[in-house]
Amino acid sequence: MMTMKKPTAVQVVFYAALLAGLLAFPLIVKGTFPTHIMIMVFLFAMMGVAWNILGGYAAMFSFGQAAFFGIGAYTSTILLMNYNVNPWIGLVAGGVLAALMGAAIGIPCSNLRGHYFAIASIAFAEIVRIHFNNWKFVAAAEGLSLPLLPESLGNFMFHSSKAPYYYIILVFLLLSVLICWYISANRMGFYLRAIKESHELAKGMGISFVRYRLYAIMISAFLTAMAGTFYAQYILYIDPESVLILPISVQVVLVAMLGGAGTIIGPIIGAAILLPLSEITRVSLGYKGSGIDMMIYGALIMLISAYRPQGVWGLLTTIGRRGK
């Protein structure tokens, strides 16, 4: 496993330069649209990293991450609106709630494999979506507009510039990457990969199958819910159509797959390719909802998965290995 090796000097310099570039980005680029695209890239990269803990390491292909995303967004928003709770506390509350929901759904689903797990995750997320769409307490399909608070880090709200949001989501992403890296380098990562390789063998080795799958679901749900709270604080309006629908879950899977599932850097590369593509085609071609932007998006997905299924990162490393 290449992620296990100690990084070489070249890699250290590369990542340090990349990080410095990312930190300087809002200072150099002034337009709001490029900053918005970068924020969306980080947001989906973070969710891709969280998905990867489930799908990439444990082969639980969740197509229901939107449920956790929505739970995060709704929990912090409802706490703020109805009980005047600070969004940062709401963020943690949303994460805990999503992790508990993940555990609740993970116990019955922990024996399901492959396609059955994928469909169960869709069914779960659809139940959540339908419920929120009809639940008066969360304003049903109407959605919630967040109350405007004075701009500050403590309030998790900024009006004059997008740059603070940019730094917050960058920190969230780095945190997710660290957690993912920690898992993959430690016992849990080995266990998850062992379960992925062979259920029976892992069981025979005495690995508690259900427990580690549950941990993976809970961590993944927590991080995804954090992304949800961030989204609510950033867009300042949420409804079931914007935070709970299947296309969000699919986009998360695509981000992870496009970059190469099961690698730490993969989802980041995937998001860096997919999000600018979908945001730019939407803005430049998506007038009057003509569908052509999504046509291009769909065509790319089917061509990449049919002809380059190992993802872009897999492609790069193959070329790298051949070059040596």
């Binding site: 292909f61 396609h115 994928a118 599932a261 003509s290 932007d293 997905i301 998965s305 190992q310």
Partner: peptide, 27 residues
């Protein structure tokens, strides 16, 4: 093309087809 490829590609390829067809119909 994905029959012998990774499991995830098998799941995702038809998602791409679905998005493409539905939006081609919208277009």
């Amino acid at each position: 093309k994905v029959m012998t490829g990774p499991g995830l590609a098998q799941l995702v390829v038809t998602f791409g087809i679905s998005i493409f067809i539905a939006n081609a119909a919208v277009f």
